[in-house]
Design a protein around this nucleic acid. Structure first.
Lengths: 201, 201
DNA sequence: GAAAAAGCGGAGACCTTCTCCGTATGTTGG
DNA sequence: CCAACATACGGAGAAGGTCTCCGCTTTTTC
């Protein structure tokens, strides 16, 4: 794709590609250890390159994050397909998908924040990925709704946000308590008891 | 409380009290306009004082935030009492309380973040207030559970976190879309349809 | 093996939080 | 009223962050 539009374009330098890969590798470890708010310059230093090089490859933290998340996003798409193929029950499928989504959103500590920011800011490298996943959520949700496994009126966007919110709550040093699972359960069934069986709506 | 333990203690300087009040006043406006992540030094400058003075009064952002939130927390406690007295239906009472809580947690843009951080960090000036509200939530919740208006198994802490999470999602520039109300509704009733009426459990 | 293009490095501009301490100001006893 | 003393103030600046700029090095090409 890159070197074929014209006749006399230069090949991208090999050291550039090598650096890019290396940065990604280091950043992955660094973010995993320090969370997404860690220092960018520290990443450059760890990678043994200058700050300028880091920023030429990834103009800001969000871009770096987006590149890092791309691989995982691909895995998530694969997971989506697997669920589609293997799971006949649409409600379970939705459940599985939301689980997978939640896992993706907690790849790094503090990730939910930039993700939420992205979906409201249009021109973010993360926005596209998020919107794609919202669409997917919508598809699973609609199927479940058709089969009576999910409330009508709920929309994919809300479910996506709910997953993000759950991940946000669970992040940081509170995994020890019951929270994560309880919160997921809460979002699935709510806190209110369903209307009395004898009196529908 | 302040000047009575010993006999020969000096009265606190009047300019100190005046400064404190003034800082609080300015900070209130500033946070309302710029969100809780705005610059501390900017607040000092706006208040016409040196950075040192600001930090002597409030050693960090969290302390300032806590002082600012205290007044609103008092109001929330009053609201709690009002609900207790006036609302006979425990489920509605819980609803009202959660609404009030959500409003408190969105007093400033970005507030949910430090609140969540506080409840996990023990020694935060915000932690005490939060824990009090968790307890209150637990009380309303238990009452509702006794009357069959809320699922058993849910705990106040989870509900509190859910409110925080909802506020977090709603914050920033996404109030335009449907989200806030929809998210609240989602947390109340969940996305899954209740088990078929004919087959309890 | 030059010339030209592309990429690199890190100094440094600018912004933050927060500290330190000389200076100013309020408070108190004579 | 005025020492003299405790207290609080102000703002320079240390420390640490993001990101830019541009002289220099490396790679590619012919």
């Amino acid at each position: 794709m890159t070197g074929s539009t014209g006749t006399n374009e230069r090949r991208t330098r090999t050291d550039k590609q090598r650096n890019r890969t290396h940065i990604l590798h280091i950043a992955e470890q660094y973010f995993a250890e320090h969370g997404v708010t860690g220092s960018m310059d520290a990443i450059a230093k760890l990678a043994g390159i200058g700050a300028g090089t880091l920023y030429r490859h990834f103009p800001n933290r969000e871009a770096l994050l987006a590149a890092l998340l791309q691989a995982r996003a691909d895995a998530l798409v694969a997971r989506r397909d697997a669920i589609r193929e293997q799971e006949r029950d649409t409600t379970t499928a939705l459940d599985l998908w939301l689980d997978a989504l939640g896992e993706w959103a907690t790849a790094f500590d503090g990730l939910p924040e930039p993700l939420r920011a992205a979906i409201t800011e249009e021109s973010s490298p993360l926005a596209l990925t998020c919107h794609g996943f919202i669409t997917t959520t919508d598809e699973f949700l609609h199927a479940a709704q058709r089969d009576g496994g999910a409330r009508p009126g709920v929309r994919g966007r809300e479910l996506f946000l709910a997953v993000l919110a759950t991940s946000w709550v669970s992040s940081a040093a509170m995994a020890d308590e019951s929270s994560p699972r309880a919160l997921s359960a809460l979002m699935r069934t709510g806190w209110a008891t369903p209307a009395a069986p004898g009196q529908p709506a």
